[in-house]
Amino acid sequence: MPDDEPTAPAAATITPYQDGPLLVRGDFALVTPDGQRIDTRRGTVALCRCGKSALKPFCDGTHKAVRFRAGTDREARGPAQAAERTARAPATVRNDERPAAQLSSR
């Protein structure tokens, strides 16, 4: 769409929260993959991004307990930014409960 054309206001807005859910506000429909409507009961909902919620697709706050990390903006895809994202990522814990970085230094 050309930049000089007016745009209609969005019926809904989706806001990613730092290390938390996606907040959906406005006029929207939430449906299952087979098209069944999910009752939201309100005009604003928090959708799980961490994948650990017991109330999926809704957020139940579990992201705090599992220390979920995610940004709020679209990040650049260059090598420097990828390295920075990797450095911020939590360490993988293996069976002996030590971070993978410590296991590789044996």
Results as ranks from 00 to 15, higher is better:
P33T: 03
K64F: 13
T7R: 15
R25A: 14
V24D: 05
A76M: 12
I14T: 07
T44W: 08
P33G: 04
A29Y: 05
S53I: 04
V45P: 00
D27E: 14
Q102M: 15
P2F: 07
C59S: 02
E84W: 12
F68P: 00
D73I: 00
T7D: 10
R25M: 09
G71T: 04
T15V: 13
R85H: 09
R42E: 13
P79C: 08
A70E: 00
G78V: 05
D19G: 01
Q81A: 09
S105L: 14
P57W: 09
A91S: 15
D73S: 07
R85T: 00
D73C: 04
G51R: 11
A87T: 10
T86E: 13
T72F: 01
S104T: 15
E84F: 12
R37E: 14
A12R: 13
I14V: 15
A46Q: 01
S104Y: 07
A87S: 12
A8L: 12
I14C: 04
T15E: 15
R106M: 13
R88I: 04
P79V: 09
R94T: 06
L47V: 01
V24H: 02
T7A: 10
G26N: 07
D4G: 07
T13Y: 05
T13W: 04
A10K: 11
S53T: 12
C48K: 00
A80G: 05
C59M: 13
R42Q: 15
D27I: 05
Y17H: 09
R49T: 00
R49L: 00
V45D: 02
E97Y: 09
D34I: 05
C50R: 02
T15K: 13
P90F: 09
K64P: 03
A10H: 12
E84R: 10
C50K: 01
S104H: 09
D34R: 10
R74L: 07
P99G: 15
R77F: 05
T40R: 00
A46F: 01
Q18K: 15
D34G: 11
A101G: 10
Y17R: 07
N95S: 11
C50L: 03
P90W: 10
G43R: 12
R42N: 09
T44F: 03
P79Y: 06
Q81N: 11
T44M: 12
R25C: 05
P57G: 04
P99W: 08
Q102V: 13
T92D: 11
A70H: 00
R42F: 03
Q36G: 12
T7E: 14
P57M: 07
F58M: 07
P79T: 06
E84D: 09
D19T: 02
E84Y: 07
F58Y: 11
Q102D: 15
N95Q: 08
P16I: 03
L103N: 13
A65E: 14
A10W: 08
A82N: 12
A29K: 10
V24I: 06
T15C: 11
R67S: 14
V24G: 01
T32K: 11
A101L: 13
T92Y: 14
A83G: 02
